[in-house]
Amino acid sequence: MTNTLLEASELAIEIDGRQLVSSVNFSVGKGSAVGIVGETGSGKSLTCRAVAGSLSTIGGRISAGNLKLNGKDLTDPKAYAKLYGRIIGLVPQNSLSALNPLMRIGTHLIETIKILGTGGGIGTKDRAIDLLARVGLHKPEHVMKQYPHQLSGGMRQRVMIALAIAGRPELLIADEPTTALDVSVQKDIIELLGQLTREENMALILVSHDLGVVSAATENVAVMYSGMVVEYGPTKELLQNPRHPYTKALLAARPSLEHTGRLIGIPGTPATPDAWPTGCRFAPRCQFVQDSCLQNVPTLQSVGSSHQVACYRADEIEILDNAGEV
């Protein structure tokens, strides 16, 4: 692909010498949206930090593999100095702690625009108002004069998005941008992110524990489990035809308004990074496990045009499943 913006291959991350992420593979095309889904401890947030260049703040580092943005090596922490704001924009999880409580929203925006120098011909103030309108805030002139605590959580998160896109970045990274928000605004925020990436031709990495959230705004999704990507492919296809037993189980474990039958949980809990099994890391909880799964860690294999799965039995399970349904 020539229009690849970001590419991660066999990315491994360690903190204090403990390896927490071992093989992450995915790519983000220019202007496309990719979701990273996983549970607590899956390594999704670390992966996100690796891309954002903020691993060092928690004592972590990329220990192996490649991470390239526009062909530029990102494994070198110094590569980030000029990327923030202009190439990479970040939307944090908690907007309240990310905004200076003593500064008006307008001041936040105007300073950011000045630093990034992206007024684009119009005055910084007009550009700030523009941005606020862009993220769907009514009465942007009024919002400019308000302090962070005067806004609701949803409005603050919109302000964060406005700040993140102020430098017209090529890549927007959002790590669980809605977990701190009320349900009724969650969907709006996710849809706003999806809409912005389409209209501004920005790429998006959306990290979430919820497949539902990711499906609303992304074209591709990477499912992570115990520090590795176990399935990667087009969001729609992955939701309709999941191939990894973990993805299948994850979907079956979600209650939904349509299905009221008994939920099937995944037995057990994920292994801690110190106790990763030698073979497939999902094997201890997998209903399809057999001896071959316990030898080596499976790697991502193509099962469709752009659908990849890291499971030795992906094909057999497909047949078993189909047979079971008949």
């Binding site: 524990h209 994850l250 474990a253 209650p255 939920l263 099937i264 949980g265």
Partner: peptide
């Protein structure tokens, strides 16, 4: 809780 664990508790 994570989704996979949530199901056990709900059941």
């Amino acid at each position: 809780l994570d989704v996979s664990v949530q199901a056990q508790i709900l059941n």
